[in-house]
Amino acid sequence: MGGIQFIINMALGSLIYLGLLIFVVGFVHKLYNVYYKTPQPLKIPQTPQPTTLGGVILRMAGDVLFFRSLSKGTTLLFFSGWIFHVTFFLILQRHLRYVLSPVPACVTFLNQAALFIGFVLLLALIVLLVRRLLDERTKYVTNFSDVFVLLLIIGIVTTGIMMRYEPFRPDVVGVKGFISDLLAPATAVGYMTLHPAHAPASLMFIFHLGLVSILLMYFPFSKLMHSGGYFFSPTRNMINNPRDVRYVNPWDKGSKEEATK
């Protein structure tokens, strides 16, 4: 094993482990300790809020799956945003084939269309970026981080697509071996004793995975937390029945004595 190869193996391994660690710990911490644990004193559901739990779940599903709230506003943003999220999800779930063995049918069913979907994803991202820079009002509120995260994902998608073409095509068996090695407990131990998994000899692949690791590390500290955060949004997840069912403020539970004093 060459020295450079060893360094690449160690670096890539470190990056991925670190990325996964920060992502999982950060994501769970934010969701549980911050979004879940912070008390909500009053009921603030917002129209059209249903008066039953089932209705609330349906409403939220409409927001998550079809961007119902967003669709009431700007058409271009709604379409490009929705297409981006859906194609991103499709591409993401296709990546399960590098982790799962044997590969289930639900992962491979898009085989024929996958590349096309990848291009649609890239296009949607470019539309989002261009819109952000051209739309006067959105541009006004755009921060550096907003552009950064778009560019990061564009980088990931572009390197991903390029790997479908020669001469960037990596050895798929090597990639799969690398990933399953990485995730095997034995390799984690090996990594700690400086025997990391073997990265495939593809610069594009290393680049792709490196960007993904950066995204993972960035995720819990960024606006990307909207993904999990949405489910805790009190204007969306509370049932609109405050007169029928008493909602108790976690930091002011109230009591009969206080009320009649």
């Binding site: 912070t38 004193p41 945003g81 959105t138 755009t142 606006k223 955060g229 949004s233 009190p234």
Partner: peptide, 24 residues
């Protein structure tokens, strides 16, 4: 306030500045 109001805490965090509200 950030510790007492989930709404405020969450809304500080999750805005993506998409611009949907800008003309509302």
């Amino acid at each position: 306030i950030l510790k007492k109001y989930k709404s405020v805490r969450l809304f500080m965090d999750i805005c993506v500045r998409c611009g949907a509200c800008t003309d509302k």
